[in-house]
């Protein structure tokens, strides 16, 4: 479903991704782990279409479409969703207005009819309930004054409302309390299906206890240096990343 081949990307003069390969099949959940600064957020944002990075080589395909040729909004309509490591505040724009514009813009691009106000409201309320959030948050500004954990939960709410095909979640588990982590995990699992794929960027085993990955990858120095099954995450938790680079050096 998602195929990344030999991806090279830079910001300014600095190369960050240096030949990254990764394939995620429909229905699968892959975890991406790796040291700070190794390029995990860079990869996530490139998938969503950020213009901060220049792709110098390689190819990214989603369901056979060439993602790199598409604008961020086209990618969203094609089913890409990025849960931001640092969700952005948009003061004065209510979550409700934001979600409705987003959903209807995507539907329009896909040639689907826009949702009626009433239907949309019912849909959003259902998702808010699922995320155990206070419906009053819908009239507050997008992430405006939200706590770190609330912002993360709001990312998953947006994801549940938009129902993407590819979910890229960049450290959505960081900053969540124990209960919130469970709710977020349930949200992710609710969208797990044979038509969807998930890329979970995380530093901790915790989230993976709730959302079982099919594969775990280690991203370091701009490349995937090791891939394995769920047991790899346990191993990393125990030993850290040092042994991997030693292994590579050897």
């Amino acid at each position: 479903m998602l195929e990344i081949n030999n991806l090279h990307a830079r910001v300014g003069e600095t190369d960050i991704l240096k030949g990254l390969d990764l394939t995620v099949n429909a229905g699968e959940v892959h975890a991406v782990m790796g040291p700070n600064g190794s390029g995990k957020s860079t990869l996530s944002k490139i998938l969503a279409g950020s213009e901060d990075y220049t792709v110098t080589e390689g190819r990214v395909r989603l369901l056979g479409q060439d993602l790199l040729d598409m604008s961020p909004e086209q990618r969203a309509a094609a089913g890409v969703f990025l849960g931001f490591q640092y969700p952005v505040e948009i003061p004065g724009v209510s979550n409700m207005v934001f979600l409705k514009s987003a959903l209807n813009a995507q539907r329009k691009t896909r040639g689907e009819p826009e949702l009626e106000a009433g239907d949309f409201l019912a849909w959003v309320r259902h998702r808010v309930k699922q995320m155990k959030m206070d419906p009053a948050m819908l009239s507050r500004g997008v992430n405006e004054g939200f706590s770190g954990g609330e912002k993360k939960r709001n990312e998953i709410l947006q994801m549940l409302v938009l129902e993407p095909r590819l979910m890229v979640l960049d450290e959505t588990d960081s900053g969540l309390d124990i209960d919130a982590l469970k709710i977020v995990a349930e949200g992710i699992n609710a969208l797990r299906s044979p038509e969807r794929a998930t890329l979970l960027v995380t530093h901790y085993q915790r989230l993976l206890d709730y959302v079982q990955p099919d594969k775990v990858h280690v991203l370091s120095g701009g490349r995937i240096i090791k891939s394995g099954g769920p047991e790899l995450a346990h191993e990393l938790e125990e030993k850290g990343y040092g042994w991997l680079s030693e292994q590579r050096a050897a």
């Binding site: 604008s71 961020p72 909004e73 969203a76 309509a77 952005v88 948009i90």
Partner: peptide, 11 residues
């Protein structure tokens, strides 16, 4: 802000 909104599908 722009990227955030665009990544949700808003032109």
């Amino acid at each position: 802000q722009l990227f955030y909104a665009r990544s949700r599908g808003i032109g």
